[in-house]
Design a protein around this nucleic acid. Structure first.
Length: 742
DNA sequence: CTAGGGTTAG
């Protein structure tokens, strides 16, 4: 190959001559002048050097320079080799540059060789201009088999089924006998169940044409059955295939993944490894997806090892699902490691890592990475906004959330179900059930997740009857319900004390999970039916988890049932000895029934195991700025005004019927004001008189502060929303939306 | 000269 040889020698000459200047010279960084001045190279044909330069430019994606140089060659009548044109056109295809593609097409000589015309045709298809492709195709003096393949493949690839079939018939009229490639292309366009019949017909034609022993052909048939939703047909066909390759295996794995049979997908993967099939990046994409879905850490790590062995970790198509796999395994560190291995991460890779940060709870990181990606002009997608909405939900940051919403609208990245559902949750968690409703109502056809998000939003805001109405509407609309929907509706019942309704919903479930049992435990516990709750845990077919016992313990605390409470605490600490909530609840319960010895014992154990109670804090966002308060806080710049306001509204700590435990006493003694009162008072002085005050607290509000909220809403006429760790409380005119039941 | 499979989510 003279061309290659010349390029190599050019390279070595350049690097030898300028070793000092070009320490890191590599193949793609050869300066353009190098090939121009080298008259002393052994050139055999006129223009060979120029052609090499042209090819070099196009291989470096320098289309503009290449085109300029092409014009230069034309001007000096230097012959341009067909191969050079081919490479130029390929670069146009790769970069999807219709503009240069057209320019180069126009610059072609009068009678270009047939294969070059096919290259132009391919370029138009690759650049997505099927109109140009069709025009050229119709005007082509000599169509080859390749031309037909290109045009049919383009139609099929774009989903233009009719055009593809028409061309298929037309080619037969022009006496071209379709080859396997034609069928492979055509089969590709039958990609949904409504095309099954025509797909089968095409399969018959394949058999009649005698292409039954073609691996690629068979993979395409398999794929057609998979995409048309007939995995069983695909499997039968697959098992009859004599020869199988990566593509056919990958196709089957995709089919299994679609049918959520991820373990079957992995079985195919194992077979592929056993049979020593050459694996490629596509095979690993789907394998990792299955590992992620199953959270099969072991399998995923083995796949990762194999990937490393084959050096495929730098491929986006492998690295991205690898990131997702580690995210699903809740191992962000490995996810970040996998991400950093990717050579050219795309927006999918970025959204996978953003999702990782948000799922794991590193909200700060998530939002910062998103912001820098955005400011650097990176490609953004809707998945990213979903993660951003999750962060805003977690921060309960309405200001950031609505900004993100606006930003997403501007970029046209919001009108899709997932993002909208995340938005419902975001607005609800920011305390704006009204906005959540608006987001929900703006959806044309809410799906399972959207309905569920809306029901959960009502549940958390204590709107049980609205939740139930929505649930009925959802049923009537025919949208499928899932386990999460039932968690939402049971939560709604639980927050409103609707025991019978909850029992009804629960009974209507075919296979409740531990989450649903725990919801029922919560329903009974809150309603004071502690015996029922305890019996339910004891009798359920699933093993109780920490949540089961914690929920029961919470109920025992509210209803002062020391006996069951102790049993629950023992069980809870058996499951998770480091659960601070268990100790705190147990301590409070012992203390409030005057068992100081036992209470002190609980504290001692806590200290021994160095379990620390989470300290309470409340915050309020005013004009986009978050103001945070802790118990008895005096650090705020307007602290004096805050305390003065508290005096003014006149609902002091002493007046309440406080919890009589030791903690409560200490607090009383020290006259420390609970953080949520400080935040509410700040809201009163810092926001306009008519606007609602929305306060957030990391722990549950106590009864005294709950009464305080009611009192202030009556006194000032303001609407006050308090979100504690459990739910939302809407205080208006001295009443709370929870009906004092929570 | 012509083709086939894949990854992100509430």
């Amino acid at each position: 190959m003279p061309t290659l040889h010349l390029l190599n020698s050019t390279f070595s000459q350049a690097s030898m001559l300028h070793a000092d200047k070009f320490q890191h010279a590599n193949f793609t960084k050869i300066p353009s002048w190098v090939s121009l001045k080298s008259n002393n190279f052994s050139i055999t044909h006129r223009g060979e050097l120029e052609n090499v330069h042209l090819v070099s430019l196009s291989k470096q994606d320098k289309l503009k320079e290449a085109h300029d140089y092409l014009l230069h060659m034309h001007r000096f009548n230097i012959p341009v080799a067909p191969q050079s044109y081919k490479l130029l056109l390929e670069t146009c295809s790769k970069l999807k540059s219709l503009k240069f593609g057209k320019l180069i097409h126009r610059g072609l000589t009068e009678n270009p060789p047939d294969f070059l015309v096919n290259c132009v045709l391919e370029m138009y298809c690759a650049c997505g201009s099927l109109s140009d492709a069709r025009k050229l195709f119709d005007e082509m003096p000599k169509r080859s088999m390749g031309s037909w393949v290109i045009i049919i493949s383009a139609y099929a690839g774009e989903g233009l089924l009719e055009d593809a079939l028409e061309s298929y018939l037309r080619m037969q009229e022009s006496n071209f006998k379709p080859n396997p490639y034609i069928y492979i292309c055509l089969l590709k366009s039958f990609s949904e169940s409504s095309y099954l019949e025509i797909g089968k017909q095409m399969h018959c034609r394949v058999i009649k044409a005698g292409f039954t022993n073609n691996v690629a052909m068979n993979a395409a048939v398999c794929n057609m059955y998979v995409k048309c939703g007939h995995l069983d047909c695909a499997e039968r066909f697959f098992s009859l295939m004599q020869e199988k390759n990566v593509v056919s295996y990958t196709t089957m794995m995709v089919g299994c993944a679609q049918a959520k049979r991820h373990d079957d997908a992995l079985r195919y993967f194992k077979r592929m490894v056993e049979e020593d099939v050459d694996l490629d990046e596509f095979a690993f994409s789907i394998t990792l997806k299955a590992c992620a879905a199953l959270v099969d850490r072991k399998m995923g790590e083995q796949a990762h090892a194999l990937i490393f062995k084959l050096g495929l970790q730098s491929e986006v198509s492998v690295g991205t699902p690898l990131v997702d796999f580690y995210v699903k395994c809740e191992d962000v560190e490995s996810a970040v490691g996998a991400f950093e291995e990717i050579d050219e991460p795309n927006d999918v890779s970025w959204s996978a890592i953003l999702c990782g940060y948000s799922q794991i709870g590193d909200f700060e990181k998530c939002i910062n990475v998103f912001k820098s990606l955005r400011s650097e002009g990176g490609v953004l997608n809707r998945f990213m906004y979903t993660s951003v909405f999750q962060v805003c939900s977690a921060f309960a940051d309405l200001s950031m959330g609505s900004q993100a919403h606006g930003d997403a609208i501007k970029r046209g990245l919001v009108s899709y179900l997932y993002g909208e559902s995340a938005m419902i949750t975001m607005y609800a968690k920011c305390g704006r059930l009204d906005y959540a409703y608006r987001a929900f109502e703006s959806m044309d056809a809410p799906d399972t997740v959207a309905w569920t998000a809306m029901i959960a939003a009502c549940a958390h805001h204590g709107k049980a009857s609205e939740a139930i109405t929505l649930f009925r509407e959802m049923q009537a609309s025919g949208v499928r319900m899932n386990g999460v929907t039932f968690v939402a509706i049971l939560t709604a019942c639980s927050h409103a004390g609707l025991v019978e309704e909850a029992e009804q919903f629960f009974r209507s479930m075919s296979s409740p999970t531990i989450d649903h049992y725990n919801c029922m435990v919560d329903v009974y516990s809150r309603a004071g039916l502690l015996k029922e709750a305890f019996d339910l845990i004891k009798g359920m077919p699933l093993e109780a988890d920490a949540m089961s016992w914690k929920t029961l313990l919470g109920g025992c605390r509210i209803h002062q049932n020391l006996e069951i409470g102790k049993a629950a605490a023992d069980e809870l600490l058996g499951v998770d000895p480091r659960d601070a909530a268990a100790y705190v609840l147990l301590f409070n319960m012992q203390a409030s029934s005057g068992r100081w010895e036992e209470a002190a014992g609980v504290r001692r154990v806590m200290a021994e195991r160095s379990v620390r109670k989470e300290s309470g804090c409340s915050w309020i966002s005013v004009a986009g700025e978050v103001h945070r308060f802790v118990v008895g806080d005096g650090h705020h710049a307007r602290a004096e005004e805050v305390y003065a306001k508290l005096e003014e509204v006149g609902f002091r700590e002493e007046e309440e019927e406080e919890e009589e435990d030791e903690v409560g006493r200490e607090r009383k003694r020290q006259q420390l004001v609970h953080s949520e009162r400080l935040a509410i008072a700040y809201g009163l002085i810092a926001t306009p008189p008519a606007s609602p005050i929305v306060v957030f607290k990391n722990l549950r509000a106590c009864r005294g502060c709950h009464d305080f909220g009611k009192h202030v809403s009556l006194l000032t006429g303001r609407s006050i929303v308090v979100r504690d760790s459990n739910r939302f409380h809407h205080f208006t005119n001295g009443q709370c939306s929870c009906g004092d039941y929570w």
